[in-house]
Amino acid sequence: MGKKKYRIFVLVLFCLLILFQAAGADYRKERKRLVEIHIIREGIEDPLVIESMLTVPREEFVPDSLKKKAYLNQALPVGYGQTISQPYIVALMTELLGVDGDDTVLEIGTGSGYQAAVLAQIVKEVYTIEIIKPLGIKAEKRLKRLGYSNISSKIGDGYFGWEAYAPFDAIIVTAAADHIPPPLIKQLKKGGKMCIPVGQPYFTQVLKLLEKDEQGKIRIYDIIPVIFVPFTRKIQ
């Protein structure tokens, strides 16, 4: 009897494992499809970015109730009026920063942690700050669980950057702002880049790229308009 029970237990475990595997394989398939259709075909060329987008499991960063929608090319709610960005925008912002394995990046607005994870696949170190405590705590746990050891996160006011680790090769701001915080400009290395969406919380915003040249002179470029897509569904 004991042996039989044990066999049944192993069988069930095995079935579950297959199911999980199958689900994982499905997500991988969907991820690949998303990257091919919405990332590569839309003009993202940086192989590091493409590889990272193919690797990071977006389904781990969305609420359970929305996992099925994880590989649609759209923003999804993560609670507190915040969203996980559209995959294409994540890829574009990452590519715009022009970073590689030697760089350190500061992210303002951790949100779900997805953007930090995508960056962490590419750069040496990612520092990320979230102002909303419950979101920040959740993201930190998630990133630890997924094994991202090169991401340091903290709960705090991103407006002042992270002086202790400054200067940064690149800064990415994921929340729209009506001005660029002066401390962030100070913490950006000469030759560094900052990516930030600008506009009002309703309707169109423009993705801007700020470049600080070797002399410290700054230029800003309009990249593309983006639509802020808010979602109000309650997160389970």
């Binding site: 006011d157 407006y159 001005h179 915080p181 002066p182 400009i185 800003i220």
Partner: peptide
């Protein structure tokens, strides 16, 4: 809130708080 800050189109040459 100590976190509210607004200054539409603030110049990048402004270095103070």
């Amino acid at each position: 809130s100590s976190k509210i800050r607004s200054a539409a189109g603030l110049s990048l040459s402004f270095e103070d708080t």
